[in-house]
Design a protein around this nucleic acid. Structure first.
Lengths: 173, 173
DNA sequence: AAAAGTGATTGCAAAATGCAAGCACTTAGA
DNA sequence: TCTAAGTGCTTGCATTTTGCAATCACTTTT
């Protein structure tokens, strides 16, 4: 599936796995949208990924060690989880979000999360990674008394929605 | 060339421009290898980019506002420069490099830079961006007494080379 | 037994890629 | 002036990847 080490550069190594639009989009939806199942990813996809592309990307990401796949029997619901390597893609997502925020425009609705994540600084990113470890790896958060970052993000998102529109329902997990 | 705003998400906006292996590789070579001309990019490419691909990517990156192109007369040497938006891709490169360093292996020779950039922290990244502004935009560095980060990187690279091999000449830049 | 839901695979047209060759032009050297 | 080398591309063309709709084999629910 992927016999292509074009060079030994660290950036190139990352690019070989992540330098593909759909891989990043899939990871984003799993991270921020908490999608864990094939059809969940298909159904809520903002960008409209096709089933064959999703299938191939999931396979690649599992092979690359960014996702794990619980091997349920055929026909049953399969759960995809982030591995530690997958969770550590979060800082890259944040960097991409910051750049997009600064140099591209987009729907304010969808910019809120990126803005919050930018303003939260490295601490929020670290906290978010802890939450992902809890969700995907079953590792308890180091300080469980802190509110979950996802709650903050969701609250900010809904505030922004209420301000912008008449107040539609959540729209995204 | 690129009429595809698939969604208004900030991450997606970045991915539409940068979510392509070759675009990132080209930007990396311009940033870290200080390549400014077409044939320079072709000749020193670790990964062996083809001329048609390079041409199309340069065109895209200029159109997207990450690069500028000085319009010399036909047949003359054209210089590509990073714009401010292009320079601000550096943190993404660093994030990618960190990830590659942690989760992929590669030639030690090429890992040195990424490691140094990781260990230098946000200050080194900021200093590096200042140096890129000097090189590409002609904006003087805020503290010109500081040694240029590129010198640090190059020194570390050569030390690593000397340690690893018999001591070949620079190999890059 | 039927219907709905699961993660995919298949067929096919369109687009992107990779490779070698060539092009129109300018500059440097004899 | 003639030649050679250097400039940034463009062109063909075979191969691969993508995108889209339909379908499949299987499980669960009704």
């Amino acid at each position: 599936m992927d016999p292509s080490p074009r060079s030994g550069c660290a950036i190139n190594a990352a690019v070989e796995v992540l330098g593909d639009p759909w891989s990043l989009i899939v990871l984003r939806d799993i991270m921020f949208g908490n999608r864990r199942h094939f059809r969940e990813l298909i159904a809520h996809s903002e960008e409209g990924i096709a089933t064959n592309i999703l299938a191939s990307r999931l396979k690649q990401l599992v092979a690359a060690g960014l996702l794990s796949r619980d091997d349920a029997r055929r026909g049953q619901r399969v759960t995809y989880s982030l591995t530690e390597a997958g969770i550590q893609v979060l800082p890259i997502m944040v960097a991409l979000g910051n750049w997009g925020l600064a140099h591209r425009d987009g729907e304010p609705r969808l910019r809120v999360r990126a803005a919050l994540l930018r303003d939260g600084g490295p601490e929020l990113v670290a906290a978010m990674m802890d939450e992902l470890r809890e969700l995907h790896l079953g590792i308890p958060r180091p300080d469980p008394d802190t509110p979950r970052p996802s709650k903050q993000l969701q609250a900010a998102y809904q505030t922004a929605m209420r301000d912008a529109t008449g107040g539609l329902s959540d729209g995204d997990s």
